[in-house]
Amino acid sequence: MTAPDGVPEVRAGDDLAGLLLDLAELADGDVVLVTSKVVSKAEGRVVPGATRDDVLADETVRVVARRGPTTIVRTRHGLTMAAAGIDASNVELGSVVLLPEDPDASARRLRSELRARTGRNVGVVVTDTAGRAWREGQTDIAIGVAGLLVSEDHAGRVDAYGNPLAVTAPAVADELAGAAELAQGKLGGRPFAVVRGRADLVLAPDDDGPGARALVRPEGGDLFGYGAREAVVRALLGDSADRAPFGAPAPAEELAAVLARVTAAEPTPEPGGLLVRTDRPEAVAALAFAHGWQVELEQAEVRSAVVARLRPAVS
């Protein structure tokens, strides 16, 4: 892996392919990695006279979590990142850089330009820095990809002991992005990196592949669609617009066990759902919402209790 020195300050309209080719020779099967920062600069995604807070709302689909000054959001790209990936480093004072409008499209354009000028078939990865759940620190990930396998599917293979690999799928595009950051450094002025030796990951010239979008879990497919505090608030509010991040309806047995544990009620199965008598209807409603179910409440014979009929929610 190499990261060439000598890249000048990138500005709107600059030719990224030309900047790279002035400093590096490419071979068939190389993987070219470029930071989203310089892609955004070249595409005019710098906002002068602005702060993160000024532009955060426009780059946000929904807030995932807030802790002190940190806001984690889901972006229009489907990425979950602090401050929507808006960056105020390595840019003129008083300006911020937004993520590329469509990082996969940016990667495809750069790949096409490099092939047109060199005849070489390469893969291209647009990288950005992100934190990770459960881990301190940050690493670079792939937010745009063209001409490259983004993950390797090991399902069906066996290890040296004969054990089947059921769900092993290395996100090779992210692994390459993290490795490239080691060569580039944060302050070295080296926004490009070239990886040689993984031509097996590079697709045919006429195949750009699924892009980095393929690595983004859909709404409801992520076990951590909200932060811990935010999930409690959303469940208690019960707004139908907030359902998707909680995922598909849980099995009736799972919800019944949770209701019994939290409210001491004993839900009984009925056609299409569950019935429970409770003096804690708000708790039942919140638990049902968090598990992808909806509730109809009826007054019970005992004034302090209600009958709750629960059904899986229909999106």
Rank of each mutant, 00 (worst) to 15 (best):
V302M: 04
L275I: 13
G94M: 11
G6K: 02
A133D: 09
V276W: 09
I141F: 09
I72H: 12
Y226E: 00
H77M: 12
S95K: 11
A214M: 08
V295T: 06
G144T: 07
R190P: 11
S89K: 13
A235S: 09
Y226L: 00
V47L: 13
F192G: 12
L149R: 15
D15S: 14
V258E: 15
V258Y: 06
G220N: 02
P271F: 04
Q294Y: 00
A228M: 12
G147W: 06
I72G: 03
E270S: 03
E152C: 09
E296G: 03
R303F: 14
G197T: 07
P218V: 05
V258M: 08
L187Q: 00
E59T: 11
A235C: 03
P103H: 04
P191N: 03
A313H: 10
V91D: 05
E298G: 02
G123N: 03
V307Y: 03
P164N: 11
A84K: 03
A116Q: 15
G147A: 10
V202L: 02
A179W: 02
D102Q: 11
P251I: 05
G247Q: 09
D174P: 00
P269E: 12
T80R: 14
G156A: 08
D208A: 12
A50C: 11
R157A: 12
L187K: 02
R309H: 08
A179N: 00
G238S: 07
L165Y: 10
L16I: 04
P281T: 02
R280E: 08
A65F: 00
P210D: 06
A173R: 05
D104S: 12
R76V: 06
V122N: 10
I143E: 05
A183L: 14
A166L: 14
E43K: 13
S304Y: 07
D200T: 06
